[in-house]
Design a protein around this nucleic acid. Structure first.
Lengths: 364, 364
DNA sequence: GTGAAAGCGCTAACAG
DNA sequence: CTGTTAGCGCTTTCAC
């Protein structure tokens, strides 16, 4: 195949007419200085203040003046300097979506995409922009904490797949408006959050397995340092009651791979089961692969149920029975709360529990 | 299941001792004003300049003084105001990763996670932070352009699954340091970029199919308004030479779902084939599902090959034969180039073509 | 409606 | 090593 090929084309002229002069070589790091509001004012023959007003909705500016200002802006290719605006306004217009998922599996779960999509959509009419930030280990988390508390953003939407004490502590100390997606274990009173009743939802789906005649239901849980992982396991236990047997329990970390490993473990330890409740659709797909490789048919030999009703559930073969996790509603609600928080509306933390729904498909 | 439940807990005291006073209710939107460098200076009994130096590496500050400044910082819970720092420094320390993928499939492809991971890792020692930004439609793209050119970031890493003229034009006009991942069709000379030889790689894998005895190889391409989609189709054509037959060609949009649809189309139109080259691993998984549902065995009846060697390739059943797309190397190289650009080092645009590698697995 | 002027909080010369 | 002093570019009273 092709050999690595590196070349430099020298100073090719940009294809668009670029107004700005070549940067002063002595301080090449600095962009050729952009036009400022002052330049616009001069060209339009008005004052700085007027340009600023024109920039911000044009209230109290005569239409004719507004137009000449806009002309000057276009002529100069002016864009506001955000740093200056932020400093003057005391806010940034940005909101961070914090994903503190671990290294190996970042973004593997397609649900993140849903959140990003809905957040962007909901934030836009509010005049705010979404930034996605990640912390893949402790040191990045430290950096991320610095970033957030340094005033880069006006608010935080926090996805918390794992417990994350230090970040939570910094967030409450900084008084940055924050909404947690899911239950912040041990910090319930300190934050606003939007969650589902994980325990009840898991109970329902395992009950469905039992009702449909399965005798022994195993499970691959999510990580137990997560409220979701814990809650779903609790629901499983409650549904099985006296029938609960530790030999039927394996643990995963939400990744597809870990779902596969969990199912393999169950098989290897000789656990007998005709149903399997997996803590997430994503893990369930991995688990189904392991079952298939071991010669178990789904659902004939083993019924498999997932959790989340993510896009993955439909792509599974056979399609997964699962619990609908209302991601979209969660995201919408979270933005609404965050907006109130940032605006100083309402008082105190807000807590929302959204309903879930059993979705029965061919895998059970 | 649980009924939606919304409650407000009133003003619960934060769990951490919070120093800041309650915000002035008349302008509740404003955070309780944070301590400034001035406050720190006063408490530490030094000047603002000294505090600033202490903040920025502590060069030219006596250890004793440095310590007392740090004490004051801790006592006050001071954190720098980024807006002020950015304004004074003329830079932000942030780099944007721009993903201009379309609505429905955002993040569905796990490869994005790889890029985010490697970018973060590579940027950190450079003292820069990664922001992930998305544009899911034209209007968001407009907003994103505003965001980027407003000086929120010092540089841009641009993933360009689709052609995106307006954004590209604004980027070159703004002279923002930018590195494109993949080939920016029609803008090759205006940007620095890191890519692979898509055409050659596709040629190799289709050649492999042919060499292994397959008589008729069909394809599901990526979107043809993409350099990758085009290039991979071109490689397919070249490998088939005179054997190229339009009836064997269907089109997808990189999504798993579209891979499934593409294969279904081929089947429905009665195309006969014993091999299928799919434009990405992700689509290939969808295509394999369609084949299986139609009763075709993989690889017995149809050999299936993907492209990218993404994590999905190994999770497929059977594991996919594919082409290794050097995502990690691409990301590392892109950051290296961007860093040079932002620092004003080197001259002109930089172009890198990375090698690929055929990966043969059980699907062919 | 519009101009003038006072900051927003920090960095980076520049003296000493 | 440290204090002083200009700004960085924009918003926002406050007069007019």
């Amino acid at each position: 195949m092709s050999v690595p090929e590196v070349r430099s084309d020298g100073d090719v002229a940009p294809e668009l007419g670029s107004v700005a002069p070549v940067a002063d070589p002595s301080r090449a790091a600095r962009r050729p200085s952009r036009p400022t509001i002052e330049d616009v004012a001069r060209l339009a023959g008005v004052s700085r203040g007027t340009v600023s007003r024109a920039l911000n909705g044009g209230r109290n500016v005569r239409p004719a003046v507004l137009e000449s200002v806009n002309d000057a802006i276009a002529a100069l290719g002016y864009t506001v300097n955000q740093a200056a605006r932020n400093l003057a306004r005391g806010r940034t217009g940005s909101v961070a979506f914090v994903i503190s998922e671990r290294q190996e599996h970042l973004f593997e779960d397609p649900n993140w995409g849903v959140f990003v999509k809905v957040f962007s959509r909901e934030l836009r009419p509010l005049g705010r922009h979404l930034l996605v930030t990640t912390a893949q280990d402790r040191s990045e988390e430290q950096l991320l904490g610095d970033y957030l508390t340094a005033g880069h953003v006006d608010g935080v939407l926090l996805a918390l797949p794992y417990d994350d004490e230090p970040l939570l502590a910094r967030l409450v100390a900084s008084q940055l408006p924050t909404v947690v997606l899911g239950r912040p274990l041990g910090w319930e009173a300190a934050f606003s959050w939007v969650m589902i009743d994980e325990e009840e939802a898991a109970f329902e789906i395992v009950a469905h397995l039992v009702r449909s005649g399965r005798r022994r239901t195993a499970t691959v849980t999510g990580p137990l340092d997560t409220s979701s992982g814990q809650g779903r396991l609790a629901g499983y236990r409650r549904a099985l009651g006296m029938g609960y047997d530790p030999v039927l329990v394996a643990h995963g970390d939400w990744s597809m791979q870990s779902g596969r490993l969990g199912a393999e473990q169950l098989l290897e330890r000789g656990a007998e089961f005709d149903a399997l409740f997996v803590g997430s659709d994503h893990m369930a797909i991995g688990a189904m692969q392991a079952l298939r490789e071991a010669g178990r048919r789904v659902p004939a030999d083993v019924a498999v149920a997932g959790f989340d009703d993510s896009v993955a559930a439909l792509m599974a073969d056979p399609p997964l029975t699962t619990v609908r996790n209302p991601f979209e509603e969660t995201a919408v609600e979270a933005v609404r709360i965050l907006d109130d928080l940032m605006a100083g509306r309402g008082s105190g933390r807000r807590h929302v529990v959204l309903p879930t729904e059993l979705v029965v498909r061919a895998s059970t």
